[in-house]
C-alpha cells in the first residue's frame, strides 16, 4: 500500500474569480450587451446565460461538432471560443437560422426532417449549422466533398448517409445560394 496525492497538486494561484468584461454580440439578429467572465465559452454563454440550448455540448473539446454555430457567417465550434474574444461578432444559432421566424424552417431543417437525417437529435443543430457553413463556403461539389467537409460533426446514431442526402437536397433547393 502506498500513498498518492491526486487532482491539483500544490498550487499557488489566487482563488479570485476573473473580472467580467462587457461585450456586445449580435445573436440571431438581436444585439445583446453582456458582462462576461473571460473563462466563459460562447457555448456556455448561449446555453446557460441566454437560454439558447439548441446549441449542444457534446464533448466540450472541439471533437464532436455538436456546438457548431455560425460566427460572422463561418462555422466554428463554440465550445473552443471564448466569448470575450468575440466582442462585436454576429452569431447565428439553430434558433435563428430561419431568419428568426419561429414558424419558418430553413431549407436544411426541412431537408433534415424529410430525409430523417437524425435520430436522437442531439448532434442535429450542429450538423445543420455546419451544413449552412459548408454551403456558404461553396467548396463542396460532390458527395465525397460533403462527407469530408462534414466529418467534424459526429452523429453517433449513424445518420450520415441521410445527412449527406439532406444537404444535397438543401443545396439544390438553395440554388447554390451563398
Amino acid at each position: 500500500m502506498g500513498s498518492s496525492i491526486g487532482a491539483a497538486g500544490s498550487r499557488s494561484e489566487s482563488q479570485a474569480k476573473p473580472a467580467a468584461i462587457s461585450i456586445t454580440l449580435t445573436v440571431n439578429g438581436e444585439s445583446r450587451t453582456l458582462s462576461v467572465a473571460p473563462w466563459t465559452t460562447l457555448l456556455d454563454l448561449l446555453r446557460d446565460r441566454l437560454d439558447l440550448t439548441g446549441t449542444k455540448k457534446g464533448c466540450d473539446h472541439g471533437q464532436c461538432g455538436a456546438c457548431t454555430v455560425l460566427l460572422d457567417g463561418r462555422r466554428v465550434t463554440s465550445c473552443l471560443t471564448l466569448a470575450v474574444m468575440k466582442d462585436g461578432a454576429e452569431i447565428v444559432t439553430i434558433e435563428g437560422l430561419a431568419n428568426g421566424d419561429a414558424d419558418a424552417l430553413h431549407p436544411l431543417q426541412k431537408a433534415f426532417i424529410e430525409h430523417d437525417a437524425f435520430q436522437c437529435g442531439y448532434c442535429t443543430p450542429g450538423q445543420i449549422c455546419s451544413a449552412a457553413g459548408l454551403i456558404a463556403e461553396g467548396r463542396a461539389k460532390t458527395a465525397d466533398d460533403i462527407r469530408e467537409l462534414m466529418s467534424g460533426n459526429i452523429c453517433r446514431c449513424g445518420a450520415y448517409p441521410n445527412i449527406v442526402a439532406a444537404i444535397q437536397e438543401a443545396m439544390d433547393a438553395m440554388g447554390g445560394r451563398r
Binding site: 440550448t53 439548441g54 424552417l105 426532417i113 437524425f118
Partner: peptide
C-alpha cells in the same frame, strides 16, 4: 412517416436533461 418530433429537434426546441434553466 417523418418524425413527429422532427421539428422540435431541427429547431433546437427539444429540451434535453441538462437544458432546463
Amino acid at each position: 412517416t417523418s418524425r413527429v418530433d422532427g421539428r422540435a429537434k431541427v429547431t433546437g426546441r427539444a429540451k434535453y436533461a441538462g437544458e432546463f434553466n
